[in-house]
């Protein structure tokens, strides 16, 4: 009798109430999800900051290239480079120009040579 009573007590002491266990599991899941989301946000935030930094550098490089390109193709620079290479260029006279027009009479996309009298 006495033995049976002791065993019953021991079993009662280890019983974990099912609703409480469920509650603990849900809280744990939420906590883990929260931690995962938090770390994911943190990671994405860091990634965005990194990309922002990269963008800043690229914009700077782009502006620098635009600046160089603008300088290179400025009329003054073009003339300087031409002079450096011993080239003298002037705007063409009318009689030196051969004009090409869209030849719609024949087939679109084909050009027509306009033979100016001066070119003959």
């Amino acid at each position: 009798m006495a033995r049976r009573k002791r065993n019953k007590k021991k079993v009662d002491g280890f019983v974990f109430p099912a609703p409480f266990a469920g509650f603990v599991v849900i809280v744990s899941v939420f906590a883990l999800a929260y931690l995962w989301l938090g770390s994911r946000c943190e990671m994405l935030g860091r990634e965005i900051k990194k990309e922002e930094g990269k963008k800043k550098i690229l914009v700077k490089r782009y502006l620098n290239e635009e600046y160089r390109w603008s300088r290179m193709k400025s009329p003054r620079n073009l003339e300087r480079v031409l002079n450096q290479n011993g080239m003298v260029m002037s705007w063409p006279r009318r009689d030196q120009i051969v004009r090409l027009y869209d030849n719609s009479e024949y087939r679109n996309g084909y050009a027509k040579l306009d033979r100016v009298v001066m070119n003959e």
Partner: peptide, 9 residues
């Protein structure tokens, strides 16, 4: 095509 004024680092 032809930039006359811009911002530059």
């Amino acid at each position: 095509d032809n930039i006359l004024a811009m911002n530059l680092g």
